[in-house]
Amino acid sequence: MVGICGPNGSGKTTLLKTILGLIKPTEGKVLVFGKPITKDTQMRIGYMPQLKGYSKEFPAKVKDVVSMGRYPIRGLFKRLTRKDWEIIERVMNDTQLSELADRPIGQLSGGQFQRVMLAQALAKQPEIILLDEPTSALDFRMTIKFMDLLKELNEKYGLTVIAVHHDLQLLKDYTDRIICIDKAVEWEGNPQDADLDEALLRIFFYKTTH
């Protein structure tokens, strides 16, 4: 599990979007799995976007949104197969959404909705999953539950989890590797490293570039 942190405007979301191929780098290049970004790499990366204002009335049920993760795998013009639905059901089970499968997405709590978006990313059966502030809308208890779930998936399926976090405590408790950025990589290391606190202080407080 990799955690990314940095001040507002430091380019965390931009970094994720560049890895996803949503933004083209102005210089340099991005390698994913050792290769430039193609449709193939996009298939192997799951993405859970930052929480934004979805319409409460959008006519989609939980299972519809989760199944979107399978669309690119199945390809254009084709319907989802029974195998796809088996995967969707397994993912909903893993994310404790099975009972909510037929609920309209507008009638979910913040925590449930974030789990739906996570399940959607997982339904792709990706090797890497990118999450942009996945817990920003959750209360303390839901945050812990969500992070435990990620940890479990990480251990169970060997899934690489790369997440942007604002909560520094979460980073220390739940990640194996921390990358702090502010326009460039400022610090990189393990949560146990002795100089982590000092680095965080430096990046968030003493660096007066903003």
Partner: peptide, 13 residues
């Protein structure tokens, strides 16, 4: 319709 950005990131044309 649901999320254009998500669709692009998924590799849809």
């Amino acid at each position: 319709s649901f999320d254009k950005e998500l669709a692009i990131a998924s590799g849809l044309p």
